[in-house]
Amino acid sequence: MNTHALYSSLGLAWQLLRRDLHERHAGMLLGTWWWLVQPLILLGLYTWVFGAVLQLRFAPHDVSNNFSYAHYLFAGLVVFNAFSEVLTRAPTCISDRRDLLLNTPLPLWILPLLPVASSIVLEWLGLAVLVGVLLISGHASWSLIWLYWPLLLVRLVLSLAASYSLACLGVFLRDLRQIMPAFLTVLLFITPILYPLHSVPADYRAWYDWNALGHLVQAYRSMLFEANLKAALLMSLLFLASVLLGFAALLFQILAPRVRFAL
């Protein structure tokens, strides 16, 4: 593919993304504010139920802990929401654009990029709020500016793997779009987002090692609250995510020519 074609394809992806972001909340009273309002409502709800009612604490051993339950929860939710954006949108991202695919030379490979791109927007909005809060209370470290990018890279490779495989499978398995919300609820509870990992009884702890998202959430928290980059963990996560992305790309390549028959 020559550079001009790549350029115009990316331009096209940009136009589609713009439409996508705008269309989601167009005509609603709060409009684009829904991007913030929705996660904040959930944050408030979870903080009240788990922090105030159930009295969960994330760092009980640390006496001089500056961060509350809400901080940890919010950090976890930012990653989780970004990821769930990919998982819910990816299965329909191709079939939603049936008309464009059949009537215009729209390249198929652009479409799974869109859920990933909008997840970045979501993540950045969330992080902006969180870092804003940290700055006000004087707990933000300037090193976050460069510590963040390796984490984002791992998160994106993982999201791309999920997006490409779900996007092409979603065309043929229409059930996926029904399954995803239920799966996400399960994922939210089996990942240490609402509760700290150390509160999990030792018997179950081994299962948690298999949850890549859980590791990623932990890495985000260490980065945000301790300015600590867990390099070894990130490298292995990146390796895993790259292998998954390889498989996803292969699957996409095999299924892409057949997509037309199922639209």
């Binding site: 115009s8 331009g11 096209l12 589609l16 464009l100």
Partner: peptide
């Protein structure tokens, strides 16, 4: 918006 999209689909850069 349709013009923007339509032109991008015809291979024009932003």
């Amino acid at each position: 918006e349709n013009i923007r999209l339509g032109l991008a689909l015809r291979g024009l850069t932003a």
